[in-house]
């Protein structure tokens, strides 16, 4: 089956490669993605089956970009709540048999 390819460009100062990779993983059943760094640009090369119409392709591209925004927000939340998450976990396992005794 023949394939269609497109390349999306992202500014490295705005998004991390990890953010875009995580977003691409969620689309693994729809397309494959390769990544390339070019100066301050992250190039995301997408390969998809050619049976997709132009409108389907545009929809996929829009959904992927929305997912990148979501992933970016997830990273902000995860980073900001890391300390309190560890605090909750340490309070959870305090004085339980699940805590490893040194």
């Amino acid at each position: 089956m023949s394939k269609r390819e497109l390349t999306l460009k992202f500014d490295e100062r705005v998004y991390s490669v990890e953010t875009i990779q995580k977003a691409a993983y969620r689309f693994i059943n729809k397309f494959t993605a390769d990544f390339e760094l070019n100066d301050r640009e992250i190039l995301c090369h997408i390969t998809i089956d050619s049976e997709h119409s132009d409108s389907q392709l545009q929809k996929l591209k829009a959904d992927f970009k929305k997912e990148i925004l979501d992933q970016h927000l997830r990273q902000l939340i995860s980073k900001e709540t890391e300390v309190v998450r560890n605090l909750i976990l340490s309070a959870t396992f305090l004085n339980t048999d699940l805590q490893e005794v040194e």
Partner: peptide, 10 residues
């Protein structure tokens, strides 16, 4: 206010 850990999805 401070955020507590949470996750989200569409």
């Amino acid at each position: 206010y401070e955020l507590l850990p949470f996750k989200f999805d569409r």
